[in-house]
Every structure is written in C-alpha cells, then in structure tokens.
Design a protein around this nucleic acid. Structure first.
Lengths: 159, 159
DNA sequence: ATAATCCCTGTAGCAACTACAGGTTCAAGG
DNA sequence: CCTTGAACCTGTAGTTGCTACAGGGATTAT
C-alpha cells in the first residue's frame, strides 16, 4: 500500500496461496477469485506454475478482506484500493465513499430494527395454541395486522 | 390459507399472472419462479396454456411475499406455508422458527451497529488531507486500529 | 382481420464467493 | 533418486432469490 518499496528485500518471505489465505483469513479459492476479478494483481509464479506471494500481497489482501468485512462491495473495495495506491492525492473521494456507505448502513439498521420490533410483537402475541389461532400465521397472511403499513421497508437487501 | 373452502364460488374472479402479480406486489417472473420452486402450486391453465388464478392464489402469494418481506428465507417460507396449511396442528414449530429468525435479526442488528460505530469513528477521525495521511485508509489497512479486534463479526451476511 | 397486449418456455445474468473434478507440482522422508 | 502426500492448478457449476431477456404463441379490442 503506502510503502511498496523496501519490502521484498527485507522481510522477503515467499508464500504459497494456502499460507497467504491462512494469514488473511480467507480461502485459496477466494484469493484466485480476487485475482480473477482484478482486485489482486496477477501473482508471479513458480517454475511449475504455482502462485507465489510476498508481504505486499499480504497487506493488499488484508486491506481487501478488511474492507469487505466493513461491508463495502467489491466495486467499492476496488475504488478504495485505487485510492490507497495513490497516496499523494486528496482523500475527499475516500470520505465520500465511506460516508455514503455509512448512510446505507444506517438505513439498513433502521429497517432491521423495525423488522425486529414487528417480529417481537408477533412472538409475544402468539398464545401458543393451534396454528389456526396462531397470531404469527395470521399476521403473515394479512398485511393489515402490521403496525407499519408500508411493507417493513420491503426488507430488500438488508446487508 | 385457513379458509380454502368457500372462495372460488363467492368472489370467483379469475386472474391472469400479470394481475396476480400486480395485486401482490411482485412480477410475473417471480410468480413463475415461485411455482417452479414449489412455493405456489402449479396453476390451472386456460385453453391456450396461460396460467389462471383465483383469490386463494392471491392469499397464498400475499402470505409468501409478506413472509419474505419479514426476511424469512424461501426455505423458511416453505415451512411456514406447510404449517399454515395444517391449522389443526399446534403452532410450536411456527414459534420456534420465528424466534430463531428473530434471534438472527437481533444478531445482525448488533453486528451492523458495531459496523456503524466503526465507520463513524473512521469518518470523524479523518482530517481530510491527502490519502497518505487518511485515517480511513489507514484503518482499512491495519486491523489493529479497530476498536473491536475480532473481525467486526466478519460482516458475513448481514441481511 | 389485425394490432396491441399479454403470456409462454427456456436460458442467462446479478453478488460474492464456494465446491468440486481431474490433473500437476512441491517438499520431505526413505 | 524416488516416492508419497499435501498443496496447488484450471475450469466449471452451485449457492440465494430473483430479474431480464429472446423468440415465440394467446387474448382482447378495434
């Protein structure tokens, strides 16, 4: 990332894909997938054609996994990487991207909270008899029994 | 659902797939999809082979859409439908399923809230200079800068 | 009769991986 | 040096829950 210079010389351990994966908390398949979609640059290869990695790759993949853990889409990660690769540029765009993501997370939070409330209401209202008198089934079958008329946010994509 | 008897006789309007879709807030493709995966039973057909629906289908599809809006997986909806189709049985299983879902929603809520906090922290800590000194990029690149050591819940599937 | 909708099937695509199958390479032990 | 077993390779298909065609046939209104 910010220091792509003196690294292969210093702590120059060379890793196979499995060890890289282990050290970054993902699977070899995922590493290959990231290479395939261009998040990781094409790895150098051993004589026999196996991928070889250095500490730079560990850093880059750590960044990627970390950003993904934060819920950023792969496209967003691509942009974040692009920015991280250009340290001299202003970080306005980083800010915008992250703030936008934050807004999305907040809206998901609200919808999810509304969902939880409705589910809780359903559960507490069920007396525990037969299905025919079950409040839960009733609520699911009849939209009018919900507190929030407008479809709970549609629940579409609450990630 | 609970009253599958006197309906086709009374308000016996017959619908095409488009109108059914409109009345339940989804698309014809989705209706066909639900039929394909067995959530909706195979529809009767017109002479020319087009699907024809009655009010029962409207109710069933409403139930499905509603359950999906509540965030239940298709498999869970399948089970809920199965239960709704047997009104004389006890509703314990419904309860279990919904409570389980509620727990999942609550855990997602917590992880999402932690995520939001971390994102907020990142945003407020960024002074707004160049990328090389951007706190956001820094945090993304270095796990140790997070408040919560263990990977924010992995963020895996926060739906 | 004819146009404008509707509807049909079947397939491919989205995100972001994961899971094989069937074959090759590597590193260590004998 | 040779063998074994683990790790690795490519390429394809599966996952979830739909959505979007393409290339036709059916229905309905004029």
């Amino acid at each position: 990332m910010s220091d792509s210079s003196a690294s292969s010389a210093l702590s120059g351990r060379i890793l196979g894909i499995g060890e890289l994966a282990r050290r970054t908390g993902c699977k070899p398949e995922t590493v290959r997938y990231y290479e395939g979609i261009g998040l990781l640059r094409d790895a150098s290869r051993s004589e026999g054609g196996q991928r070889r990695y250095d500490e730079d790759a560990v850093r880059r993949l750590t960044f990627i996994r970390h950003a993904r853990d934060f819920g950023f889409s792969v496209d967003a990660v691509r942009e974040l990487l692009e920015m991280a690769d250009h340290p001299e540029m202003p970080c306005d765009e980083v800010d915008v991207l992250v703030k936008h993501h934050l807004e999305e997370v907040e809206s998901r939070l609200q919808r999810l909270a509304a969902l939880r409330d409705e589910l809780e209401r359903m559960v507490t209202q069920c007396a525990g008899g037969k299905v025919e008198s079950c409040r839960i089934i009733e609520v699911l079958g009849d939209h009018r029994l919900c507190l929030r008329e407008e479809e709970h946010g549609g629940a579409g994509d609450l990630r």
